[in-house]
Write a protein that binds this DNA or RNA. Structure first.
Length: 744
DNA sequence: AGCACGCCGACT
DNA sequence: GTCGGCGTGCTC
């Protein structure tokens, strides 16, 4: 069977040679629906489409955007009754490369291809070319009465270079009405100019690379590898401040010299003005941005620039991976370990992994970058799948902070407090020198749990049963799970006793209270996401801290990323063990990554700096990895643990992985599965984006991914699967012997 | 994904 | 008597 749709019609119309088959051509179109296949549409006379064409088609009562795909229309459909394509958008069709990528992602993530395709054509109004802009060109003659303002305009326009109305008024420093006056006198003709580019073109040789030693070596290794062309995957693994960005900037320069487009993926939070400025300093222009809260107008312009090839570099969040670049030649995935690369709704994917796939399909390099690589990437680095580039030292004047553990069993805090005397002494010394201390605790609010001393009542969320967290600044108790909040009650709702509520454990607000008690003179700031005043206030506070307008900063995760604080020479981790025992198989990895990031905030400007970690488990591999500065033993152990966790003994079936729209659904399905088959052990429940990764070493012989939202259906499917073996109808997909990394 | 239809509980 | 909750079905 060929791919040409004429085969199908051969089959349909061959038998009785009626009159002539009607001259109607039919194509497959991926529509934005969760259905497994493309739909078929008629192509009206005179309309030209090809695979990849972006079209508008009728779907039920509405019009939707679709993409012409290859593949044969369903033979059961009557071609005469097919609805026609409404219009073809005037934009370049998706490339073969892009279509292969979409098909691959849909297959791998078990997602409907139409929903994957939709991610590539999500800027609806951008599908038509941008209108030309009106401009004025001098056509000769003189103004009736010359005035100083008119003279300034005339000086500019005499060489007949066209200006837009507002451009001319700006350039001449006159008001619009002066221009209009001259237009009325017939001095100008209207011409149309192509719209201005969204961003200027970056120049690979705008400035010389500012790197030396190991960084230069690493950069030339990568650039050399790029010379030959073709696919390669590299992992740059370097401590905070080791010049990773400078190294991958050289890879970008090389791709630009080769005339290719570049995509830089960043976790949403890292897409900051400071990153864009750094890029501009090196390349003379900013990259185009792509993220969820880009203004619609800008989104269209960038999309358009990307397909036409006018935009050369995009810095974007995970969704940028699905932009239909004209000639993409390099992808950088910065902070590759960051969980923000996972999308866990609609189409479930990890942009980091899909970036590798896109590069493989397009035959160009991909560079993953992290100070604390994910365990998966570490495995791929060790096995040789990824080319490892290790940057062990800091770059320039920055020195690594001196890191120590505080064994809390030997140096306990005073009664009612949470800060060890060792920590307090270090803070004191730091602020005496006029430097800054950061106390990190990844817990918002005053206390994670509140209870009544009289009856033992614990404040629990009425909606989701997690503890309610007291926020003293706001006078509220809040649920950090679902957002439920109420005013902090004065009396116990259970026994009615007043003033007997007791806070258990620390949050940042409570640490602030303790700090103020010990250092009443110090300027103390609490930084957490519930800072009153929103993003604007937050930015101001961060700037103030950078300028040295605070002595002690107490913060949650929020302070871990991005910002540079030149005077920050002490980082104190208040509860380094927090997060190690939450049942997540990635708990240790996450803790290691977070703590590395936070301690990396110190010492980036040449001042001698320190990091102190309060812990009850000084022997824990995470603590050892952090203070020794050598993570290799930690990674070895993690890889082993991960394999044990993900490969439970399961008889002939290696394991069943249950994954659904949400982790919660997956848990529900797993419960149903366990109830239906009490003897089955070894059911692994993962979030959808994680399920394929679980097969990191490809040893599973069987996997089951459950997709669907109807819980009752799911339970039925699961039961019937157990009763009848893996022959299940409906929305349950079963794949046998899949090696998820077979693309490499 | 949207959106229509249809069936049961609590209200202007 | 209706308004509206969500469970179900359909889209070439």
């Amino acid at each position: 069977m060929g791919k040409d749709s004429s085969d199908l019609f051969g089959a349909l119309f061959d038998a009785p040679p009626l009159a002539r088959p009607p001259l109607v051509s039919v194509v497959s179109v991926l529509v934005p629906l969760p259905v497994p296949e493309a739909y078929s549409y008629a192509v009206p006379d005179g309309m030209a489409v090809m695979p990849g064409s972006v079209v508008q088609v009728p779907l039920g009562p509405r019009q939707v955007i679709g993409v012409v795909w290859d593949g044969e229309p369903d033979p059961r459909l009557d071609p005469k009754k097919l609805r026609p394509i409404t219009q073809v958008f005037d934009c370049p069709p998706l490339t073969d490369e892009m279509r292969s990528f979409i098909d691959w992602v849909a297959g791998y993530t078990l997602s409907p291809p139409g929903l994957v395709a939709r991610m590539a054509v999500r800027a609806p109004a951008a599908l038509e070319p941008e209108p030309m802009v009106e401009a004025l060109r001098y056509r000769g003659g003189e103004p009736e009465r010359m005035t100083p303002a008119r003279a300034r305009v005339m000086d500019l326009v005499r060489d007949e270079v066209p200006f837009t109305r507002s451009g001319l008024s700006h350039a001449a420093g006159v008001s619009i009405s002066v221009i209009d006056g001259l237009v009325k006198q017939g001095l100008f003709e209207t011409v149309f100019l192509p719209p201005p580019p969204v961003v200027a073109r970056p120049d690979p040789d705008y400035t010389a690379p500012r790197i030396e030693g190991p960084q230069k070596q690493a950069a030339s290794e990568i650039v050399e590898a790029m010379q030959g062309g073709g696919f390669s995957a590299s992992l740059i693994d370097g401590v905070t401040g080791s010049g990773k960005t400078e190294v991958y900037f050289e890879a970008i320069a090389q791709a630009l010299r080769q005339g290719r487009q570049v995509l830089i993926l960043l976790p949403e939070i890292a897409l900051t003005a400071s990153f864009l400025e750094r890029f501009q300093d090196r390349f003379g222009a900013k990259p185009a941005e792509w993220h969820s809260d880009l203004a619609p107008r800008m989104r269209e312009k960038v999309w358009r620039g990307v397909v036409t090839g006018e935009v050369r570099v995009v810095a974007g969040a995970r969704s940028a991976l699905f932009l239909p670049f004209e000639e993409l030649g390099l992808i950088i995935v910065d902070e590759e370990h960051d969980s923000a690369y996972k999308q866990e709704d609609r189409v479930f994917y990890n942009a980091r992994d899909m970036a590798v796939v896109r590069a493989r399909i397009g035959q160009f390099p991909v560079v993953l970058v992290s100070a604390t690589p994910s365990v998966e990437s570490q495995v791929n680095g060790q096995s040789g799948r990824y080319h490892l580039v290790h940057l062990p030292t800091r770059f320039g004047e920055a020195a690594m902070p001196d890191l120590h553990l505080i064994d809390m069993r030997r140096h306990p805090p005073e009664r009612g407090g949470f800060l060890s005397p060792v920590m307090l002494r270090a803070v004191k010394k730091t602020i005496e020198k006029g430097q800054q201390a950061l106390l990190f605790l990844n817990r918002r609010g005053y206390a994670p749990l509140t209870l009544c001393r009289v009856c033992g009542h614990r404040f629990q969320c009425p909606q989701c049963s997690s503890w309610l967290v007291e926020h003293r600044f706001k006078g509220q108790i809040q649920c950090h799970q679902c957002g439920y909040a109420e005013k902090t009650p004065e009396a116990c709702p259970e026994c009615g006793t007043f003033d007997h509520l007791v806070a258990c454990g620390p949050g940042v607000e409570r640490i602030a209270e303790e700090v103020e008690k010990h250092f009443p003179e110090a300027r103390t700031i609490v930084m957490s996401s519930d800072l009153l005043g929103g993003v604007k206030r937050m930015r101001l506070e961060l700037e103030a801290i950078a300028k040295g307008e605070a002595d002690i900063v107490i913060g949650t995760q929020l302070v871990a990323k991005g910002h540079n604080f030149p005077l920050m020479t002490l980082v104190g981790i208040i509860d380094a063990d927090l997060g190690l025992a939450n049942g997540d198989p990635r708990a240790a990895e996450r803790t290691f990554q977070l703590l590395s990031q936070v301690t990396g905030r110190a010492g980036r400007t040449g001042l001698k700096s320190h990091g102190l970690l309060q812990t009850y488990q000084p022997q824990h591999p995470v603590m050892q990895a952090i203070v020794s500065g050598d993570a290799s033993a930690f990674y070895e152990r993690e890889i082993g643990e991960r394999e044990k966790a993900l490969l439970p003994p399961f008889g002939r079936l290696a394991s069943i992985i249950v994954s659904a729209d949400t982790r919660l659904d997956a848990e529900t399905h797993a419960r149903a599965l366990r109830a239906a088959a009490p003897k089955v052990s070894g059911i692994t429940v993962l979030g959808p984006a994680e399920a394929p990764l679980a097969l990191v070493r490809g040893r599973h012989r069987f996997r089951l991914l459950v997709h669907g939202r109807r819980n009752s259906d799911m339970q039925g499917y699961l039961r019937s699967m157990l009763a009848n073996g893996p022959k299940v109808r409906g929305t349950v997909h079963v794949q046998l012997d899949v090696d998820p990394q077979s693309f490499l």
